[in-house]
Computed example of a mutant assay.
Amino acid sequence: MNEIKVKAEAHTYPVYIGEDLRHHVKQYLPKHYASILIISDDAVAAHYLQDVKESLSEETVFSHTIPAGEKAKNIEIFYQLHSKAIEFGLDRQSLIIALGGGVVGDVAGFVAATFMRGVDFIQMPTTILAHDSSVGGKVAINHEHGKNMIGNFYAPVAVIYDVQTLHTLHNKEVRSGYAELLKEALLADKSLYESLIMMDLSSLTGQNLTNHLTRGIKIKAGIVEIDEHESGIRKHLNLGHTLGHALESILGYGSWTHGELVAIGLLFAVRVSEKMYAINLPFEQLYTWLKDNGYPLQLPDIDPEEILLKMKKDKKTLDSTIQLVLLQDIAQPALMEISDEDLLNKVYDFLRELKQRNK
């Protein structure tokens, strides 16, 4: 088992990464709790909820499942979970465990941040993608006009990452998670990028997963410790996300995976970086790897102006000017303000290039 310490403003918390951890949850609790509410989704609960319950057999445990998928990150589910917490009699000495992927972690974490003005919660990610969202304390739900627009910064008391839960993932979810790992590598670790770009995602081993996840989480933790509230370099973690989130909002949450659209956003960021800094980056290598590993790279026809409008609603936009995370080289990120006209032209050129490549 690997252990990483993450220093948050409120407290330092451990991230445990290994196999079979779901069978030993009690030993990773930081203290005794009056009661525990496990929040999971329909898909994950069928596989792993009973294991976690049995590992906490001596505790007072309740559970509630929400629908699987991004569409569950809404105000109705958020309110429903508060109602369940009240119904189960949770108090300020209770714990919420988020057992699932990024959606469950975001919703359950936001409930924990707001129930009785805040109770402890633990992240138990069950997807590769959630290695990113489970660390750093960002919790949120979606608004119809933008992803993660309603939320807070609220650090968990622990992250318990059982990599065995990743072996039941569909290929789409594996692709989704590795897009975030690629993002972290492009931001801060050239050797990790070179390792990932040589991987065939259909032949991943448990050791591959543990190694890649540990390195990705260390990158995320290192950035978050410097800038927990996203006033500076934490914005770099949005590499590929300004376009990715815009596409997610336009196409509908859940129709593509988050990571699949982040992958397209990474291609866009790399291409724009090449033009803005007059440099050569591994666009072709990245495109080929994504294509060889089954990432969908053909978007439906979308009006570039609609994309621009969605990008302007991104949380990193300042005074209506879009801030785009770019790369001056691998592991050398930079934040650049781009005018609407310039960005619109670049979106148009990029969509046209994607269409030509997929003829």
Rank of each mutant, 00 (worst) to 15 (best):
residue 67 P to L: 10
residue 165 T to A: 13
residue 286 L to S: 11
residue 287 Y to D: 13
residue 53 K to R: 15
residue 225 E to Y: 09
residue 286 L to I: 15
residue 164 Q to T: 14
residue 237 L to M: 06
residue 203 S to L: 10
residue 315 K to F: 01
residue 134 S to R: 01
residue 123 Q to G: 09
residue 3 E to M: 11
residue 182 L to D: 02
residue 85 A to H: 08
residue 56 L to R: 09
residue 176 S to Q: 09
residue 313 K to P: 03
residue 324 L to N: 03
residue 359 K to N: 11
residue 1 M to Y: 06
residue 70 E to T: 02
residue 215 R to W: 02
residue 81 L to A: 07
residue 256 W to Y: 14
residue 146 G to P: 10
residue 47 H to E: 09
residue 107 V to K: 00
residue 250 I to G: 02
residue 33 Y to V: 04
residue 13 Y to W: 04
residue 281 L to I: 12
residue 172 K to Q: 14
residue 219 I to Y: 00
residue 92 R to W: 08
residue 229 H to Q: 12
residue 23 H to V: 07
residue 350 F to G: 00
residue 60 T to Q: 12
residue 214 T to R: 10
residue 94 S to A: 09
residue 274 E to L: 07
residue 117 R to K: 08
residue 49 L to C: 05
residue 68 A to F: 02
residue 342 D to A: 14
residue 193 Y to S: 05
residue 206 G to Y: 01
residue 91 D to M: 07
residue 105 G to N: 04
residue 178 Y to C: 02
residue 151 G to R: 01
residue 168 T to Y: 14
residue 274 E to M: 15
residue 35 S to W: 08
residue 42 D to N: 15
residue 77 I to M: 14
residue 219 I to N: 01
residue 33 Y to T: 06
residue 203 S to F: 05
residue 299 L to N: 08
residue 332 Q to L: 12
residue 53 K to Q: 13
residue 10 A to K: 12
residue 5 K to V: 11
residue 152 N to S: 15
residue 136 G to P: 06
residue 3 E to R: 11
residue 286 L to E: 10
residue 3 E to P: 00
residue 321 T to D: 13
residue 91 D to S: 13
residue 54 E to Y: 14
residue 344 L to K: 09
residue 263 A to Q: 08
residue 286 L to H: 08
residue 287 Y to Q: 03
residue 347 V to A: 06
residue 169 L to S: 09
residue 117 R to Y: 10
residue 52 V to L: 14
residue 206 G to L: 13
residue 2 N to S: 13
residue 173 E to A: 09
residue 254 G to N: 06
residue 41 D to L: 12
residue 262 V to Y: 02
residue 72 A to C: 10
residue 125 P to V: 08
residue 301 D to M: 12
residue 263 A to L: 08
residue 83 S to G: 07
residue 334 A to L: 09
residue 118 G to P: 06
residue 271 R to F: 12
residue 209 L to I: 14
residue 67 P to C: 11
residue 264 I to Y: 03
residue 41 D to W: 12
residue 78 F to E: 11
residue 330 I to C: 05
residue 210 T to K: 10
residue 326 L to I: 04
residue 333 P to E: 08
residue 181 L to G: 00
residue 201 L to M: 13
residue 113 A to W: 00
residue 171 N to M: 14
residue 62 F to G: 01
residue 217 I to Q: 04
residue 294 G to N: 07
residue 269 A to R: 00
residue 43 A to C: 10
residue 59 E to F: 06
residue 316 K to N: 09
residue 93 Q to I: 12
residue 276 M to Q: 13
residue 23 H to L: 15
residue 173 E to H: 12
residue 74 N to V: 04
residue 111 V to D: 01
residue 272 V to T: 06
residue 104 V to W: 04
residue 8 A to F: 14
residue 81 L to I: 11
residue 232 G to A: 12
residue 6 V to L: 07
residue 62 F to W: 11
residue 224 V to E: 00
residue 145 H to R: 14
residue 315 K to N: 00
residue 266 L to Q: 02
residue 162 D to I: 10
residue 332 Q to H: 13
residue 357 R to F: 07
residue 233 I to F: 04
residue 12 T to P: 01
residue 199 M to W: 05
residue 26 K to L: 12
residue 167 H to K: 15
residue 50 Q to D: 13
residue 90 L to P: 07
residue 260 E to I: 03
residue 205 T to E: 11
residue 215 R to S: 03
residue 184 E to D: 11
